[in-house]
Design a protein around this nucleic acid. Structure first.
Lengths: 341, 341
DNA sequence: GTGATCTGTGTTACCGCTAACATCACTGTC
DNA sequence: GACAGTGATGTTAGCGGTAACACAGATCAC
């Protein structure tokens, strides 16, 4: 009368592999082999197992699998918790690539790209059992933090390609900046001003260097660099500052949001873009095409970036130790803010 | 001469709890008790264990713990892979709240809020062993998808509060829309036009309803609703359409990006904001304060939203079955786009 | 002094899965 | 017809933790 426990599979809880095995009348290993498609199993047996899986609604428990294999098939991403267009897009690009490869993504956000926060975030992810970590915090502090992380975590950064210790993938900010500056020079300006991003950000540096290289190659006088913090407000303030100088007629701004602030400052002062001043941004945020006027800017391919950086992490996880660096190309998108006058 | 395996702790791999136990000369359970702070352990013993932990650099393996306890301390978030400001901010708000409670967050992105994609994303997260899932896909298709998910996954949605089957938390879109419309009426306009979000989005609906309620309460004539897809482009097109009507002098736009497109269309047509037309948006994206002119809009508190929705999920995970709904208040931010003429 | 109660610790079994090895028919070979 | 090789399956022992119970010694009530 009394039923043994083996008669009550999946009593309330999720069915386990052993429930499937019991239902199909095979051993656990056979089920495991069917699920994972390795080892050889007779077609008829496979059928029986799959039927049982179907009927019980079995789903493998990835914690158990991870524990047994030592591979969790999960990666961690450290991201800034701001909704900056670049970093947020990069995160989704990575998730995309990870998904295709059957990996899950755990995120740990940090409120600022500061050393202790980043180290702590990486530790958090580690203790969640991720196989590797991607850090999207393109800041020199982040770069230094990466060196303080135990070497046993496969780690890849979305950062400047000159980052020393870890493999990196990055958009080619320098080239983007060069294209932007070249474009402005090609329109006949004597020189090009620059509103840079904040100190310490690798993207600021790379974009600034790209701009400076072109100015120098052209033998043009190098105007003082103005500096914002990526926000529209700071672009606006830089714009007010620019208005105090004469002969500013071409400005390359390190991101679109600051460019928006600049456009605002210029328009308030009755300065017309592109008639009096030409402006180029960076990022091609969705709004950029609808600024007043629509903004010439540099577009980045985040899907491709995600794929690159994920691919690097995978190599790293598989033990490769070569120091790789991927560079994702950019594209200049010309709009009215650098139009004909 | 030959050393037994017990003499070689942490041989290459991460130290495990048993390595700590061996080093401290206690049993595994004692270490477990010290780590988790439950059960009673003599102060001296605790000290020894903690020293061993420190010395070996031990970190608990959350996969193993999750397997043993049946609780992974991880939640899943389903998010759209676009960088729409609201959804992306909500994701970070959730991560914030989860972190405070010691939870990790796994993300699964979907390219569109469509039924099969969402169900698949939830399944993916489930098989990653999450304890519960938060769906940030405020779309009716998403809502329906939630009903097709097995009831054994604790599930909370960031969606409209009228969502039937699952608990939800949401920003009070309806009230935000009401405030926006009331604000425009209070400036003396006869009626208020509306550029709505796309069909099927709960936020579109709620914002549209809020607007319609005010128009109706005021006994004003109800203009036809224009509809965009959240993008600046669609706002621009709606703007072109509006320009064909006379007597449009107040417009409530369902999000800031479309409002930007509208501003662009108006400015191209030589229509001045706020002199000829007043405009209110929704979201308060960081750019909004720097539009031309700066945009009056409705601000949402995503940190608070994240906290609410995470709290609900936690209740749900703990077995509570009450159908809760949280509403997060909004705030109207008045700027020049509804300024005096 | 005897049993009840507490503290501090250890033992055992198991969470759900897989790696590694073992087993047992078959098959083909000479 | 004995033997090696192969394909299909099972057995065992973990992965790194924790729950549940066991147990020794100290403390306490009466």
């Amino acid at each position: 009368m009394a039923k043994g426990p083996e008669n009550a599979p999946a009593a309330g809880r999720q069915p386990a592999l052993s429930d499937v095995a019991a239902a199909a009348g095979v051993s656990n290993m056979t089920v495991s082999r069917v699920i994972n498609g390795n080892g050889s199993v007779r077609a008829a047996t496979r059928r029986r197992v799959l039927d049982a899986v179907e009927q019980l609604g079995y789903r493998p428990n990835s914690l158990a699998r991870g524990l047994a294999t030592g591979r969790s098939r999960t990666l961690g991403a450290v991201a800034l918790d701001s909704v900056l267009y670049g970093p947020a897009s990069t995160l989704f690009g990575i998730e995309n690539a990870a998904r295709e490869a059957g990996y899950g993504v755990s995120v740990a956000s940090v409120s600022a790209p500061e050393h202790p926060l980043i180290v702590e975030a990486i530790e958090r992810l580690r203790s969640q059992g991720v196989e590797g970590v991607i850090v999207i915090a393109p800041h020199v502090a982040a770069g230094r933090a990466l060196e303080d992380v135990p070497q046993d975590v496969p780690l890849v950064a979305v950062a400047d390609v000159d980052q020393p210790s870890v493999p990196v993938a990055a958009v080619d900010h320098r080239d983007g900046a060069r294209q932007a500056a070249e474009h402005l020079f090609s329109l006949g300006h004597d020189t090009v001003w620059h509103i840079a991003g904040p100190h310490g950000w690798l993207e600021s540096q790379a974009r600034e260097e790209g701009w400076r290289a072109v100015v120098s190659e052209r033998g043009a006088p190098e105007p003082p660099v103005l500096r914002g913090d990526w926000s529209p407000r700071s672009g606006y303030e830089a714009g007010r500052e620019l208005l105090r100088h004469d002969q500013v007629d071409a400005v390359f701004v390190a991101n679109d949001q600051m460019a928006l602030g600049l456009l605002r400052a210029l328009s308030e002062a009755g300065v017309s873009v592109p008639h009096d001043v030409r402006v180029v941004g960076f990022d091609d945020i969705p709004e950029a095409a609808y600024f007043s006027p629509p903004l010439t800017t540099v577009r980045q391919d985040f899907i491709s970036l995600g794929r690159q950086v994920f691919g690097q992490l995978l190599h790293r996880i598989e033990g490769e130790r070569t120091r790789m660096r991927s560079i994702v190309p950019v594209e200049l998108v010309v709009r009215e803010s650098t139009g004909t006058r």
